[in-house]
Amino acid sequence: MADRQSVAPPIAPARTRRLLGHAVYVIGDNPITAIAFALFALIIGVAVFGPLLIPFDPLETNASRALMPPSLDNWFGTDNLGRDLFSRVIIATRLDLMISVAAVALAFVVGAAMGSAAGYWGGWIDIVTGRLIDTIMAFPLFVLAMGIVAALGNTVENIIYATAIINLPFYARVARAEVRIRRDSGFVQAARLSGNSDLRILALHIFPNTLPPMMVQISLNMGWAILNAAGLSFIGLGVRPPTPEWGIMVAEGANFVVSGEWWLAFFPGLALMITVFAFNLLGDGLRDIVDPRQRT
């Protein structure tokens, strides 16, 4: 206790430095988290600068070069229409990320608001939210997403809505639980005595404290959201050919695997896997930073 008091400098910039130092310490302690951060940066880079990186037009067909295995010209080979798979896999990154980021963002905003209100005020808000969440959770989630897309219409926006709806319960539940355990805590009572209104307490005192667990949840769910969106397009929902998208590319390539042309399905599948893997590792790493005790 004594040495801690003597080292901690009181000024604000030092605080940022210390936080950074903690992050560096955790990453240094756990090289896997460092790999996750690097992968994450790489994926974001590919999504942003994708169009600048590709050697071929991802939609350009070339019958004379159909079904070519990976080579120096076509790093990932070509598909049955002679399109360059490397270019298609790179270009698809942005669409796949966009769908899942939009879905998770939507689910987070709505879910966190619903869950926080339910956790803080309880009563009928809690009952209504709880029923809604339970009803969503009463379906196998991927199947529900299929049903929603089938009912709303087969478009990319509806894939986003469906993915958002099946992600919503996770955020609502975490937010509700995290708000609820703090609702009657000492610091919230103290905030009440200090003259804060309910909304102010929820927004400025409780919510910032629930953010770390929510961040972990976001990171873990992002991978799951990507898998779900890709799964939907794999069974022919949402994205239409010839738009490059990982799920649909794996579906197209699946027919060629039994005849040995493995690269059609392999590279988009690998891209999908690495992306999901990066998010899951990141989630685990964030959890270590937020709460070392929950390390699994």
Binding site: G223, W224, L227, A230, G231, F234, G247, V250, A251, G253, A254, V257, A265, F266, G269, L272, M273, V276, F277, N280, L281, D284
Partner: peptide, 14 residues
């Protein structure tokens, strides 16, 4: 960690 990252349809094809 690897297991939750595997797309089922891709594992099947592999």
């Amino acid at each position: 960690t690897a297991g939750v990252s595997l797309p089922t349809f891709f594992t099947g094809i592999a």
